[in-house]
Amino acid sequence: MVQFTLPAGSSPVKGNDHKNETGASNLRKFHVYRYDPDVGGNPQIDTFELDLDTCGPMVLDAMIKIKDEIDATLTFRRSCREGVCGSCSFNIDGVNTLACTKPIAEIKGDVKIYPLPHMPVIKDLVCDLNQPYAQYAAVEPWIKADTPPPNRERLQSPEERAKLDGLWECILCFCCQTSCPSYWWNGDRFYGSAVLLQADRWVQDSRDEAKGERLSELNDSYKLFRCHTIMNCTAACPKSLNPGQSVAHLKAEIAKRE
């Protein structure tokens, strides 16, 4: 059966409380999920009190400040700090988003930072993304064409190119993918919204010659059709893309062949 409750040893317990005793007035509490596989036991929620007057505006700035000045063992992925690499995706204030583009000022009260939901946690805020990466590889996200390549690039009309807008911008942060209850329950078989948006990106590409093959592979009651139009994906996307529309487009393309 589907697990509606956390497995034994997974419920977070109260952790360390790092108070700010500098006398600063603009304080904000950050509750951060911590789990160390070397120590084992239940994960814990550590609380860090930060002076926002000496901290950058984004949640990632606060996390880097914690790591630099309070607890160097805090582990998380981050790289570009401008919403392009997709590394710093976490569940912040109850919503999956990128820490680098989420202003602290947008969050009322304490800031809660958890790993992406329903993914195996490797350490602290780093979760195992092998499954979605493998699903991404399974949709073969590259151009497939039997026509010999021309001497220059394969041509595309401006209208054909415009169809890829809203698709190519995906940075594979998996905020959408891991916000989907259908992916939580059947992530081993359902490809998930980010991967399906990428599949749609190649189905829509006029230069690709494997549309039929791609659609046949997706005509599966789990890989594609486990999407129940919940639309958490579109609500969560920090790049304001619409994975739900891509999934709907794939379903319609398959239905049109019938």
């Binding site: 399974a138 081993d188 046949s216 997706l218 005509n219 599966d220 890989k223 398959i254």
Partner: peptide
Amino acid sequence: HLGRARGPGSTDNGVEH
């Protein structure tokens, strides 16, 4: 991981439902 993602292949019947 890729072997698991591909699984036994498409069931070819998602759209009928």
